[in-house]
Write a protein that binds this DNA or RNA. Structure first.
Lengths: 153, 153
DNA sequence: GTTCATGCAAAGCTTTTGCATACAA
DNA sequence: TTGTATGCAAAAGCTTTGCATGAAC
């Protein structure tokens, strides 16, 4: 079994949860589609390909479990569905996102750009930061090009 | 009529929308509770005190309209409901939030702490930033004190 | 055999929509 | 009067829950 799956299995066992076939299939989908930001429904459909008998409720329960264990982060880009994002290995903080308001694409920023800002928040506001959510909304490279072309054509 | 309400009225008229009594009551609630982060349901209950005949659907429609005009920002702290936050006068960007994971309190940071980070995102990722969402999760001052007391008592 | 996990269906919530009515330019 | 806005109720999502069944130790 791959390194990452093995690691997650240990995390589950450490809290006396089992890595059932359904949970494994769900994690596998999340690993395979690590760059995406899948909704529960999308994950469900992909998991069904690996484990056709699985129910949507189990996917929700698994995702909730993985959230609690901080293996995945639940995120909401404002379109009414929750999306689930695997934490990068060893990452303490949730990574950042660039959401294009034109084409809807989502890019990830793994670098932590908020270290300085968090120091300011802790010293000036007395707030002890545990985690963060940072999303930029704007135009991705492609859509910037497209809008320049439209403007000049 | 107060300055801010008058201003919003003009913004509506500029797009040929009317400031109906229902919309005015909704805006009034948002102004009165500017520091809070009310859900549609909470806003509805407060608006009912000013305009008892109003329907929940109208509140939703008004909030959607105000969102489009960038008079309010819709935000989601992950508890399954959307919350609506009046933009500060003249603010270009949405302000930041400090959400306490212990007591659930939400504090606002009006200062824009992301100017440097946005420059990096634009230059290093080629992403043209239009707006952002930044929320810190952690312990507020009060809850930090409380947890120290608990630990030492 | 006891506990934990699953699948299915039903229920629960928030939010949106259809439609007839009321209002305003 | 012509289009916009509203209220109500129904519908439409997404997510959670109850419960009986099944698997694991």
């Amino acid at each position: 079994m791959e390194h990452r799956m093995e690691q997650i299995k240990k995390q589950l066992h450490a809290q006396s949860y089992k890595l059932t076939p359904q949970r494994e299939a769900t994690v596998r989908v999340l690993l395979e589609r690590e760059e995406d930001h899948l909704s529960a429904e999308e994950i469900y459909l992909l998991v069904k390909e690996l484990a056709p008998e699985i129910g949507l409720a189990t996917v929700y329960r698994t995702l909730e479990l993985l959230s609690e264990l901080k293996i995945v982060d639940k995120i909401n880009f404002g379109d009414g569905v929750s999306r689930y994002d695997l934490r990068k290995e060893g990452a303490e903080h949730f990574h950042h996102h660039l959401v294009c308001i034109e084409c809807g694409s989502v890019e990830e920023i793994v670098e932590d750009l908020l270290e300085d800002v968090e120091k300011i928040v802790e010293s000036d506001w007395g707030f002890q930061v545990k985690d963060h959510r940072l999303t930029f909304h704007g135009l991705c490279k492609q859509c910037q090009k497209a809008s320049v072309q439209t403007a000049t054509s």
